[in-house]
Each structure stands twice: as structure tokens, then as C-alpha cells.
Design a protein around this nucleic acid. Structure first.
Length: 564
RNA sequence: GUCCCAGUAGCUCAGCAGGAUAGAGCAUACGCCUUCUAAGCGUACGGUCGGGGGUUCGAAUCCCUCCUGGGACGCCA
């Protein structure tokens, strides 16, 4: 990992000179690492590769290099076995880092890699007439964080909520409603009632397969513009969107577009015609498909046997439309891993159609939320409602506030920030692809690696700053605790870049946890407000920590109250 | 059957473009508030890095193979 770049570079150059061109500067830079333990130094150069080339013991090489290097930026250069370790000049390094953070404020870590190019992000994308489940939370929260990170890296993010508002599921829902539905009950509790109908359909279809045919028929009618079908569809859709909006408000997430599958309905025929004109369609079992045999993949189903469209065509139409509308540089799809094959197929079909930008489409899958080790399934009604979990989280946060700080102003606002933040952070702190076992207990925990830990640390630091009026000073600090924090703060810009380039908000989450941990250790070891000559330098450190912590949380989609 | 993802401490997970003694949190035990928010800090306990091969100075990390869990594999999305 490349840390503390300017100092690393200085070190690399010094090595380059000392080695008299035996290794290129680039090669040296790539070899540099950070010692496992800080007592060993701030940067290290392992001599193994050099030893191999020169056929000299790496220990001897390290010894020789350490003696040859000396630079005002380094306090000490020493050989430690086969490594050359350097210690940065703490005072100047910390002065440099802290003054930069104070100068740049929330813009510290901004990066212009994107150069103003557009990135579309397909996120959340719940299915209409189904409740907003825990699974949708992952897409929403990961997508929102990637959107913030994209912006921080100089891109212009476009958040698209590709609503699942079309498809055979509506045939099923209409069928179920006409058989067993009750208008008043649906009006009273739309989401719950519609889900019940959906579940009932699947139960009854087990013993009565004719229902499936009926559902297909209703969807076909919907596509053909049947009035009754359309009316029901619109009703179901409106009710659902209203319900989703409440959740988005709680999560503070907004979208640039809600164009869902239905929006592309009238563009499907054009895509099918285009495929046909290019000779890409072949008939198979009465359905029309695009063969992907040359890629070793199963064919992509385009038109069903009954003439109805498939979700693949809708994704094709949507991708084409998005490119026309936004001219994206990248197009991200934050969608579950079960659709990996589907996206591979869609991208390859687009390429076969001649759209070179299909290469810029990136599927960003994530692990499942499991219940007792199994994927949760809507069809069996095994579902946990996000709204209930959020309400539970906020209520727990409220209780904790009453316990810890009953005189806090804005208790209700803060309870919301803590409760919602803890859910978001729980979802983002682990590797995207890892599965998450659903557990209210861990999800709503307020100890350890949680949003609250970060929020608490931030509030604590803010509290210190509130108590003084003098301006922070940045002539530097050199004790162990301070310097560990400074080094960590200096990594932030790199973390911002890596989190986005790997599409992995968890890297940032881990970074923030570590920062909070270092700060809390410092807090308990050093009396920050003691009035001595160093106080204003300590305050500069505290201020810098609040800036980076708050910005980290913002990029994750979590709020950082100044007091709690 | 084929393909994809995962397997690291009792539990949840970091680490994985190979590098120095494998790290956190939870749980357990014990310390630390007359002083800046104890929602915190510290110490202890805890490991055949799923098994087995291989590549090399060096493997949790790369390659092969097997085992286990999950997912996908045309008319759901």
C-alpha cells in the first residue's frame, strides 16, 4: 500500500540515488511498505529482490543502504535485518499534514480523477408491490456511498432508482387480487396486503399450476394496454412508491431518476427490432434468444414463447437509453450477485449490437442477507421489513440517550441519526461480497465497531473544540500518540481513491474505525486542554480529526452530530 | 452436472497486485472516572489461517486438487 506519498517518494528517491540506478524509481516505489509495528519506523524497503539480483545477502544490502541514506525529511534511517527502515521527521511531517487538513477542511481528500465525467449508479431498485426489505437496504446504502465517493473523486454521479415496476410479477399480483383481494384492505395497508396476496399466489400455484398461466396472460394484457390491468398496475405502483419514500427520507437519499422497467416498455420493440435487423436473434423452443456460445455462456432470452418481453430486453433498453441521456463514463449496477450471469449476458449482447460503451458497465454485487443461513425469499413471505428495523433502531437509540445523556438537546433528531447510522454502518463496514446473517442484536449494537463509536468520538472531539477560543496552531507534534494519528490522517486521500476504485466503502469504514480508535487512545492518555505551549497544536490535531471523521461518515451516508 | 462467491480466535469479521511476531470487535476475566462526554481506555484469555499438494529465499495471500456452505445455470426479476 502506498502511504504518505510525498515522504515515500522522498525515501524512494534517496534509495534510487544510493542504488545508482540498480532499480528504477518506479520499482523501488512499488516495493516500499509500511512496517507492521510502528517501533520499526514509518516506511520500509525490503532488500530481498535486490539480494537475488546482486547475489549478496539482503542483510548486508540493508546495512549498506541505511548508511548511505540521509535526508532532512528523515529523523533516522536504520537497517533492521533485511529491511531499511526510515523514521520521518515528526515535527515537519505533522505540521505539513495538519496544516493541509485545516486549510482544505471538508475538501481534504478531494481528487479530480473523474474530471467531471458522469457516472450513473443503478441502486436500490425495489420491486413495486413488495415491501422494502433488508436486501434492498444493501443496494441502497452501498450505492449511496459509492455515489458520494464518486463525487469526492471528481465524477458527477447520477443516482437511478430502476424500480421493478413491470414484469410477470404484476400478472401474478393482478391474478391474486382478482381472486382473493379486497379493495378496502388494500387501501388500508397497501404494502402488507399486496405482499400477502403475492405470497398467497405462490402457495396456491404450487397445487394449481393453471394460476401461472393466468398470471402470464394478465401480464400480456398489461403489456398490450388492457385498461383494467393498467388501472390496477398504476394503483399498486402509486401505493408502493409512497411507502418507499418514507424510507428514503429516513436514509437521506435522493434520486435523479425513478425510471423503472415500465418506463422502457415502449422502447422494447425498438430493441428487439434492432437485434433482429442485426441478425442476432435465433429461434429456440419457440422463444427468441441471442446466442452467446462463443463466450461459453448460455443464450440470453429476449422474447418469450408467448411473445412477452423479458427483463433482459428491458435492461438492454435501459442501458441504451441511459447512454443516450447521460453519456456516462462508467455505469454502475449495485445489484445482488444472483444477477451476475444476467449482467454478463446483457453486456455481451450490447457489445454484439455494436455498443462499445458496454465495457464501461460494471456490475457491483454484494452478499446476501441470510436468515438462518438461507437467502431470504419474498415468495415464501420470509421477509423482514426495513421500516420495522429502522423504528426499532431509533427506539433503542432513544433509550440509550435517556440513559447516558438525558439533558441532550434535539434528542429525537440525534436518536434518528444514531439509529439510522448504525444500520447503514453495519451494512457498510464489512466486505461487500460477504454474506450477512440477519441479527437485530448485532445490527443494533451500540458498542465496538459501530456508527455510534464514530459518532461518539466525533462528538467528544467537538466538545473539546467548543471549550476553547484560541486558534489551532500547526507547528507540529511529535509524541507517539499524536504521530500515529497524523500518519493515519495522511492516508485519507489514498483511502478515498481506493474505496472508489475498488467500489468498496468498507475500506473507508475500516479507516474511520481505526482513526476513532487512535483518537480515543490519545484522548485517554493525553490531557488535551491543559494550558501549556503545546495546547494549540493539540487542538489542531483534534480539529483535523473532526474534519476527517465527519467527512468519512458523510461519504458513508452517516450523519455526525456535534453533541450526543 | 457446469460456472461464480465464500471458508482466518467460541461468535462476527480485517488482513489477500507474496514479506518482519496473523489483527480488530463481541463474549469472558481483571483494572481505569475529585480532572476535557466511561456510548470510552487498558490488560489477560483465545489460532493446524477448511484439508492436502505445488511454485520460492519467504504463502493466510499465487497455482492445482478435494471437502463444506451459499448462489446462478431460458420463459421470476
Amino acid at each position: 500500500m502506498r502511504h504518505m506519498e510525498s515522504y515515500q517518494l522522498t525515501f524512494a528517491q534517496a534509495l534510487h540515488t544510493a542504488l545508482q540506478g540498480k532499480l528504477s524509481l518506479q520499482h523501488i516505489t512499488n516495493l516500499l511498505e509500511t512496517p507492521r509495528r510502528k517501533e520499526l519506523g514509518d516506511a520500509a524497503f525490503p532488500c530481498f529482490t535486490l539480494a537475488k539480483e546482486l547475489k549478496i545477502s539482503p542483510v548486508d544490502i540493508a546495512q549498506e543502504l541505511a548508511e548511505a541514506i540521509s535526508h532532512p525529511a528523515f529523523e533516522k534511517v536504520e537497517a533492521h535485518g533485511p529491511y531499511v527502515n526510515v523514521f520521518f521527521h515528526r515535527l515537519s511531517f505533522s505540521a505539513e499534514v495538519l496544516s493541509r487538513i485545516l486549510r482544505e477542511g471538508e475538501h481534504y481528500g478531494d481528487h479530480d480523477a473523474g474530471n467531471g465525467a458522469t457516472v450513473t449508479i443503478d441502486l436500490s431498485s425495489p420491486n413495486i408491490a413488495k415491501p422494502f426489505s433488508m436486501g434492498h437496504l444493501r443496494s441502497t446504502v452501498i450505492g449511496a456511498s459509492l455515489s458520494h465517493l464518486a463525487e469526492k473523486n471528481g465524477y458527477v454521479p447520477i443516482r437511478i432508482n430502476y424500480l421493478g415496476d413491470w414484469g410477470t410479477q404484476f400478472g401474478k399480483l393482478i391474478t391474486a387480487y382478482l381472486h382473493w383481494g379486497d379493495e378496502d384492505r388494500v387501501r388500508k395497508q397497501p404494502i402488507i396486503e399486496l405482499l400477502a396476496l403475492y405470497v398467497m399466489f405462490h402457495e396456491k400455484a404450487q397445487t394449481n399450476p393453471a394460476l401461472n398461466d393466468e398470471a402470464r396472460l394478465w401480464f400480456k394484457k398489461l403489456e398490450d394496454g388492457d385498461e383494467q390491468a393498467l388501472q390496477l398496475w398504476k394503483w399498486f405502483r402509486d401505493e408502493s412508491i409512497q411507502s418507499f419514500q418514507k424510507t428514503y427520507d429516513l436514509l437521506s437519499i435522493s434520486f435523479h431518476s425513478y425510471n423503472g422497467e415500465a418506463f422502457y416498455n415502449d422502447k422494447i420493440a425498438g430493441v428487439v427490432n434492432q437485434l433482429r435487423a442485426k441478425g442476432l436473434l435465433t429461434l429456440s423452443d419457440g422463444a427468441e434468444v441471442v446466442s452467446l456460445e462463443e463466450h461459453g455462456l448460455p443464450p440470453c432470452l429476449i422474447v418469450k414463447r408467448d411473445g412477452a418481453s423479458t427483463y433482459a430486453v428491458r435492461d438492454l433498453a435501459a442501458a441504451i437509453d441511459r447512454y443516450k441521456t447521460y453519456h456516462f463514463k462508467k455505469s454502475l449496477y449495485v445489484v445482488g450477485p444472483e444477477q451476475s450471469l444476467h449482467f454478463q449476458q446483457v453486456m455481451l449482447v450490447l457489445e454484439k449490437m455494436g455498443y462499445t460503451w458496454a465495457k464501461e458497465m460494471i456490475h457491483i454485487p454484494f452478499g446476501f442477507i441470510l436468515k438462518e443461513g438461507k437467502k431470504m425469499s419474498t415468495r415464501k413471505g420470509k421477509i423482514i421489513l426495513l421500516e420495522e428495523v429502522i423504528a426499532e433502531a431509533i427506539s433503542l437509540a432513544r433509550q440509550t440517550i435517556e440513559l447516558k445523556n438525558p439533558t441532550l438537546p434535539n434528542k429525537e433528531v440525534v436518536a434518528k441519526q444514531i439509529g439510522v447510522g448504525s444500520l447503514i454502518f453495519h451494512d457498510l463496514k464489512n466486505d461487500r461480497l460477504g454474506n450477512v446473517e440477519f441479527s437485530l442484536q448485532t445490527m443494533l449494537a451500540f458498542e465496538g465497531d459501530t456508527a455510534l463509536y464514530l459518532q461518539y468520538t466525533h462528538a467528544r472531539a467537538c466538545s473539546l473544540l467548543r471549550k476553547v477560543t484560541s486558534a489551532p496552531s500547526t507547528s507540529g507534534l511529535c509524541d507517539d500518540h499524536s504521530f500515529s494519528i497524523v500518519k493515519h490522517l495522511s492516508l485519507f486521500p489514498v483511502i478515498v481513491q481506493n474505496s472508489f476504485s475498488h467500489y468498496e466503502p468498507s475500506q473507508l469504514a475500516k479507516y474511520a474505525i481505526q482513526l476513532a480508535h487512535l483518537f480515543n487512545a490519545y484522548y485517554s492518555a493525553v490531557r488535551i486542554l491543559t494550558e501549556d505551549s503545546e495546547r494549540d497544536n493539540r487542538l489542531a490535531l483534534v480539529k483535523s480529526v473532526t474534519i476527517v471523521l465527519k467527512e468519512s461518515l458523510r461519504l458513508l451516508g452517516v450523519q455526525a452530530p456535534e453533541e450526543l
